[in-house]
Structures are given as C-alpha cells and as structure tokens.
Design a protein around this nucleic acid. Structure first.
Lengths: 145, 145
DNA sequence: CTGCAACCTGAAGTTCGGTTGATGTCAAGC
DNA sequence: GCTTGACATCAACCGAACTTCAGGTTGCAG
C-alpha cells in the first residue's frame, strides 16, 4: 500500500495529477480510516501505462475506456477485450506509421542539406504527401478518432 | 494560389485553425487587394507537416521553430539545421520506441486473453516496466523535453 | 449592379490536462 | 500529547489549441 506521496515519487506524477486521474476514473484507491488514499503496488504500473499512452496522443478518456476492461473489471468478456485491443492496436500502428513517415522525411531532408530546395521533400509540393487526390486528409483522418 | 476555404478543404484543417497558425507564425499568406488570404500550393504540404508533428506530441511553438529554418529562411545555416533535425530525430525515435512498447504490451495482453491476471504483463506488477529501481520515471523522462 | 456566400478582424468562449490556493484534518516522531 | 509535514476537499486558475460570435467587407454568378 502506497500513500499518494509515495506513488507520486515513484511514478514521477504529481499528487494533483493522481487525484485528477482518480476523479476521471483512471485509477482507484482505498481510504484509511482518516480518509487518506492508499494505493496498491499495481497502481504504479497502471500509472506508467497511462503516462505512456497519454504521451503518444491518446486522450485520458480513451485511456480510461481502455483500462476499464482491464484488471478489476468483473467480467472482462474476452470478445470485448479483443475488440478494444484491436482498436487500440490499429490506432497505435497508425501513430507509429505517422511518426516513421515524419522521421523519414526529416532524414531525407538532412540528406539534401535543405540547401537545395528543389530536391527537398519537405519544401517540394510535388512529393507523395502533397495533394494526392483531395488532399492529405486521408492520411490524417486515419489516426485521430 | 488557394483561398483559405480551399486550403481548409484540401488539408482538412478548419479555416479558424489556419488563421490561428498564421498568427503563431507557422504559415504565411499573401493578401488580395481586398485583404483576403491567398496561399501557395506549398502551404498544403506545410500544413500536413504541422498536423502530423502536432499529432505526435510536438507543440505548435516547437513546430514553428523547426519550420522557421526551412523554406524561405534566408540563411538556413546547415549546421543549425542539422542540430535541429538531430533533436527532432531523437525525439521521434523516442516516441516511436514508446509506441512500439505500448503496442507490444497490448499484443502480449491479447495473447494472454487478460483472463489470467497472473501472467498478464499489463496487470502484473513484476514485469520489466514496473518499479525497476526507483520507478518508471527513467522510462518516461527520456521522451518528453 | 445586386445579392449572397465566403472572407475579414478582434474578443470572448471552450476543452483538455492539469496546478494552485484556501482551509481544514491526519498521523508519526519527539 | 503536541507539533509539523503530509494529506483531504473544493473552487479557481492556467496554457495550449482552437472555435464561436459579432459586426463588417469582398468577390463572383447571374
């Protein structure tokens, strides 16, 4: 059992943020007789997961929904869980693809030195990212929501 | 030359957001005699880049700073550009690694069906992510900032 | 040349993810 | 047994990234 201060120190997340997560339903705590929060060790793992997921662009609401079907949900319903995980997976795959594309674009730009604008993929409007069909919406819409 | 409505339709970004980006210095426009914005085709590419970068967790300020040394900056100073790109690259590499870790955790959780909590890496506090040393801060601190 | 959709500006409002007080209680060391 | 630092709640505030609104202008189709 950890106090909020201990959980904060070990997770690197401020107590105020932990209380906020609790209000949103991302984590839970037991209370002492004096109404102070006590966390299980597993919460540490959960908080780490939340931070990582938040950092890669998922909203706390999405994370909460995902976590809801994890640990202490009474009936995980394997099918529900798999559907959920599949959704996350494709979301993550999209996000990874996006990042790699961005990184590759940057890398090729370093390659060209960005002194010759004609050959720089980042400034050249004729490359594979620009205006294929109606625009890059296809590319962007796939990842969010 | 695109009107703001055209740029919006083709980029999938609302006109209000485009004006906002302009105020922050992420994009530029010429004006007609009647003060309406006109954008170059290249702006489409720039907006796509902004959206991708924003989506992977970079602030508009960071993106603006990165874009400042691109296209129409007078003196790109190859060294400056490379330093900047290196910073972005490591940032992106971190983010990609984080995402892949998250995805792999999820995948292994699908594997275990999350019905046997004892073997589920997401709920088991003894795995490689949880509390090695003082906590997962090491893992998290590497990526932001 | 007129009407109407698309555009302009500036200020205020919204949502998200928290932080910062103000005010009061708890618990652990001396 | 008391003091002091950690904890509690609640409301207000914050910055980022936009959106909405009010009130006025532009430009093109008919």
């Amino acid at each position: 059992m950890l106090t909020i201060g201990e959980l904060s120190a070990r997770s690197g997340v401020a107590p105020s943020a932990l209380r906020y997560y609790e209000r949103l339903g991302l984590i839970q705590s037991r209370r002492t007789s004096g109404n102070q929060r006590r966390y299980e060790q597993a919460t540490l793992r959960r908080v780490a997961f939340i931070r990582i997921a938040a950092q890669v662009g998922l909203s706390l609401e999405e994370i909460r929904d995902a976590l809801r079907s994890l640990p202490d949900a009474r009936t995980p319903t394997r099918a529900d869980w798999e559907r959920l995980s599949r959704r996350w997976r494709s979301r993550l795959d999209n996000q990874i693809a996006l990042l790699q594309r961005l990184r590759d674009d940057l890398t090729s730009c370093i390659g060209c030195g960005c002194l010759s604008l004609k050959t720089c993929r980042l400034s050249n409007p004729g490359d594979r990212l620009a205006a294929e069909g109606p625009g890059p919406r296809r590319l962007l819409s796939a990842a969010r929501r």
